[in-house]
């Protein structure tokens, strides 16, 4: 769990980086693919706490957790993106991200990897993948041969069920 000082530092660094034409992305793994979300959108990274299932909730809702006295709805990012649900989460983490209506949402991911600082030249628009790209893909990031699918948090959560 990143403590609050840690998350503030994350935020400050991200802001400073963006000013210089560089954006910081948090790289995370879902199944076999690596995704990136803008670091400015990540409030906190949690080790997956005990989860309470919510019957009758939408398919991609894993359940609710208690974060320091507040209830947070956790969304399975793989299900939300329509990815196969294969491995049991072992290094699973929950990212706290701002959702619509001021709600803080949890995104469950298989693993959190590292922070990439990408300059504009290292980011390709989603268009390179052809016409039929999912709305939530904002672009492709490249660094040292690694490939990062950059997610648009707004497209991802805007229609949050």
């Amino acid at each position: 769990m990143v403590n609050s000082r840690g998350s503030r530092q994350l935020g400050r660094r991200a802001q400073a980086a963006e000013r210089g034409g560089v954006t910081e992305f948090l790289a995370l793994r879902l199944g076999s693919e690596i995704y990136g979300v803008p670091l400015t959108h990540v409030r906190e990274i949690l080790v997956a706490p005990p989860l309470t299932q919510v019957p009758r909730a939408p398919h991609d809702v894993l359940g609710i957790i208690n974060v320091r006295g507040h209830l947070v709805t956790v969304i399975d990012l793989k299900r939300r993106l329509g990815l196969p649900d294969l491995e049991p989460p072992r290094k699973g983490r929950v990212l706290l991200v701002p959702g619509p209506e001021g709600e803080l949402l949890g995104l469950s991911v298989d693993e959190v990897l590292q922070v990439y600082r990408l300059s504009e030249s290292e980011i390709e628009p989603a268009g390179v993948l052809g016409g039929n790209v999912a709305e939530h893909v904002a672009g492709i990031g490249r660094r040292d041969g690694a490939l990062l699918i950059l997610l648009s948090p707004r497209a991802l959560l805007g229609g949050a069920a």
Binding site: T52, V54, P55, I64, A160, A161
Partner: peptide, 27 residues
């Protein structure tokens, strides 16, 4: 008792959730 977030608003049958101890949350 605490209300469920807006993302679960349309889920019927629950008035909210509460912490029950041992970090468990119960609907």
């Amino acid at each position: 008792i605490k209300p469920l977030g807006p993302s679960l608003r349309q889920v019927r049958g629950f008035a909210g959730a509460a912490q029950l101890g041992d970090q468990r949350v119960g609907l």
